[in-house]
Design a protein around this nucleic acid. Structure first.
Ligand code: FES
Ligand code: FES
Lengths: 143, 143
DNA sequence: ACTGAACAGGACCAATTAAGTCCGCTATCC
DNA sequence: GGATAGCGGACTTAATTGGTCCTGTTCAGT
C-alpha cells in the first residue's frame, strides 16, 4: 500500500474540516466519532498537520480544529506528503560489482519517472474537489 | 517504499541471468555471492519466479537457473508484479456516514489514475533495457 | 483565582508485514 | 548410489505501522 491508513484518516479529517469551516472550530472528539477514527491516533495526525500549518488548533473550551488553508489552495500531493512524508518508490541495495553503481543505472531514471507521474496526478486535485457525504446529512446551511 | 527489497533482489538477479543466458544455468550460490544477496532469501525469490515461468530451474549437478523468457519480451511491470504482487495504492476505511461511500468517491478515481500511471511507466521498459556493470568485468564473450 | 474543556507531546505497547533462516526432501548427473 | 543443486514448509527476527496512555499546558467562563 503506497498510502497509509494514517493518510486515509488525515485526508478524511481534512475533508470534514473543509466541509464545515466557517462554522468555527470542530473538536477532535467530534471528528473522531463521526469518521470512526481512533481518537488518540487522530490527535497525532492533526497535531502533525497543525505543525505544518494545514490546520490550526485552538485550546480551551470551545476550542478545536479549523482548516488553516483554502481548500482550493492545497493539493492532494501536499496533503499526503505532509502526512506520510515523501513517497519513496524504490531503494537499490546494489554494491560494487552489481549494476552500474558507478554512475547511471537506468533504474534511477525509471523510478524517478514513476515518482514524477504519481506527483503529477496528485498535484492535479485539491481539497476542494473532495467532500464527505455530499448527498446525505448536514445541517441546512446553504440549502 | 513502493517496491520492496525483494523486488530489488529479484530484479537484479534477473539482470544477471539476462546477461549470461546462453552460457548455461547459473547456480543460486553464484548469483547470491556476486550480487551480495542472502542466499536462502534469493532462493525463495527465484522459486517464485520459476513457478511463474520467468526463469527455469535445473536440479542436480551442473544445474542452476536460466532465464525462461526473452529479455525484450518481459516488462518491468510484469517482473515487479510477479515478485511483489500488484501495487496497491490506497485503501479507504470509510464506513457509513463518512465520504461518499454510497457510490462514487473521487478518491477511487484518483488512486486508480495513480495506479495507471505507474503501470504505464513500468510497462515502458523491458528486461533487455537493463544490464549489470556494463563497463566493468565480464568475460569477453562478445567483445 | 479556579474549574473544566480542549489540544500537546512524549513514552509506550500491539499488530502487521517484510526480511531472512533452517532443515529435511526431491531430482539429476556421473 | 553419492554428490550437487533446487524445493518447500515452518520458523524467527527486525522493521514499520497503528494505536494507547498519561501528564502537561492553554484558555473561556465564572
Ligand atoms: S539495479 Fe540498483 S542501481 Fe542499478
Ligand atoms: S474518502 Fe474513502 S471512499 Fe471516499
Amino acid at each position: 500500500m503506497i498510502f497509509s491508513r494514517k493518510s486515509d484518516y488525515g485526508l478524511r479529517a481534512l475533508m470534514y474540516l473543509s466541509d464545515r469551516r466557517a462554522k468555527g472550530p470542530v473538536t477532535l472528539t467530534e471528528i473522531a466519532e463521526r469518521l470512526m477514527i481512533p481518537k488518540a491516533f487522530l490527535s497525532k495526525i492533526l497535531q502533525q498537520l497543525a505543525k505544518k500549518g494545514v490546520v490550526r488548533s485552538l485550546k480551551g473550551p470551545s476550542g478545536g480544529f479549523v482548516l488553516a488553508v483554502e481548500p482550493a489552495e492545497i493539493t492532494l500531493q501536499e496533503i499526503l506528503t505532509e502526512i506520510d512524508g515523501p513517497t519513496r518508490v524504490f531503494e537499490c541495495f546494489a554494491t560494487e560489482s552489481d549494476c552500474t553503481l558507478y554512475g547511471d543505472c537506468l533504474m534511477r531514471e525509471v523510478f524517478g519517472e514513476v515518482e514524477d507521474q504519481i506527483g503529477k496526478v496528485l498535484a492535479g486535485y485539491t481539497l476542494a474537489d473532495f467532500h464527505l457525504t455530499p448527498r446525505a446529512s448536514e445541517s441546512p446551511a446553504k440549502a
